[in-house]
Every structure is written in C-alpha cells, then in structure tokens.
Amino acid sequence: MTTAEYELCVASQLGKLAEISDFVGEAATRAGLDEGQVFEVQMATDEACTNSMEHAYEGREDGEVHVCCFIENNSFVVRITDFGKPFEPAEVPQPDITLPLEERSIGGLGLFLIYRLVDDVEFARDVGGGNQVTLRKHRSKEE
C-alpha cells in the first residue's frame, strides 16, 4: 500500500467509535505497522474523533466525521475532519500527570494522549469550515 487511500464517513455519534477504530486498524495493519503501533494509532484516532463529536459538534449527533488514511513520506497518516465549531487545542489545559490522584483535574487527557501516541499532530481549519486533525505515525521499516 503506497498510494492507496482509505476513507470513512460516519455520523457524529460516539457509538460509531468502534467502527472508526476497526477501519483505522485495518488500514494501519495493511500499511505495515506492528501491533503496538496499530493500537497507538487507533487510540489517538479514537480520542481525536471523541473531541470532534463532544466538542466541535457539542454532542450533536447529526454532524459528519470524515476519517481518511494514507501513506506519506513513510508515515501512516490519519486525517480526521469535522464541520463543527472551531477547536483551539491551545485552550485545552494540560493535565499534570504527576499530581496525586485526589488532585487530578479530569479534562485534557484525550489531547494529552494523542500527542504521546503518534509522532506528529497537526490541527488546522478545514477549507469547508471545519476542523482538520492530522496524525502521523512513522513506519519503523520500509515495505
């Protein structure tokens, strides 16, 4: 798979997250990522799609989330696009993971995980007026 692109379009419903995960898992496996890398990409995608559904669409279930997977410069790329309200990653507080559990705040964990699970994360406004999140995971070896 060097030029193949995989695309999935689902409604902005949390119940669709499992379908998205299976879709990305298959594309990542075909792209030659190992089991651990596949899991990390699936999880980062899951958290990014959750953000789209819960924040960009504010829980509205009639929106659309597009997930597109492809290979670029030996990286497996997942691009998630929504058409909800603008998402500003800089406004999300960073969780302090060194605090004792009792003092932990409960927000920001999804974004925190995304940054740690993939090699590169890029947020952009889509030309169609939505949010576009691009996740890149380097492939460990050439196919």
Binding site: S21, Q42, M43, T50, L101, E102
Partner: peptide, 19 residues
C-alpha cells in the same frame, strides 16, 4: 480490549469517591 480517556476519567472519579 480498549480503555480510553473517558474511561480513565470515570476511574479517577471513582478513586476519589472511594478513597
């Protein structure tokens, strides 16, 4: 099989309540 950030939050809430 999978435990996302929302599940972790539920766990943290439960820890605080139980402890």
């Amino acid at each position: 099989e999978y435990f996302g950030s929302a599940a972790i939050r539920a766990l943290v809430v439960a820890y605080k309540a139980c402890r």
